[in-house]
């Protein structure tokens, strides 16, 4: 029981670091934003594992929902400016 929780936590931490590195390494902005969103979801799972439900809800709503939408609108505006 205890070891399963520890293994899950370590897997999530490895995936968290992987998502962060991927979001920095890619040149394409869209893929970076999607990796940031995945980062937020993995962080939500970690918060839930540590029983911080309030912070998990805030992270899921803001990190995965709102900031992705705002980044997307900013990216579309930048591309529009380039094509003009």
């Amino acid at each position: 029981m205890m070891t399963a929780t520890v293994v899950l936590e370590n897997l999530l931490l490895i995936f968290l670091v992987l998502c962060a590195v991927m979001s920095v390494r890619f040149e394409e902005e869209l893929i970076s934003i999607i990796f940031l969103s995945t980062f937020s979801i993995v962080l939500t799972a970690l918060y839930l594992l540590h029983r911080a439900a309030d912070v998990a809800l805030a992270e899921a709503v803001i990190g995965a929902g709102l900031s992705t939408a705002i980044f997307m609108s900013a990216i579309s505006q930048i591309r529009h400016g380039d094509s003009d």
Binding site: D54, L57, A58, V61, L66, A69
Partner: peptide, 29 residues
């Protein structure tokens, strides 16, 4: 639900307000 049950269950004004804003964002998409 998240706003009004802020003192009983996880959540509160800030999180529920962001969900309200997300409705408006999905409308625009």
């Amino acid at each position: 639900y998240v706003i009004t049950h802020g003192h009983l269950s996880p959540g509160g004004g800030f999180q529920g307000g962001v969900i309200l804003a997300v409705i408006s964002i999905i409308f625009s998409i």
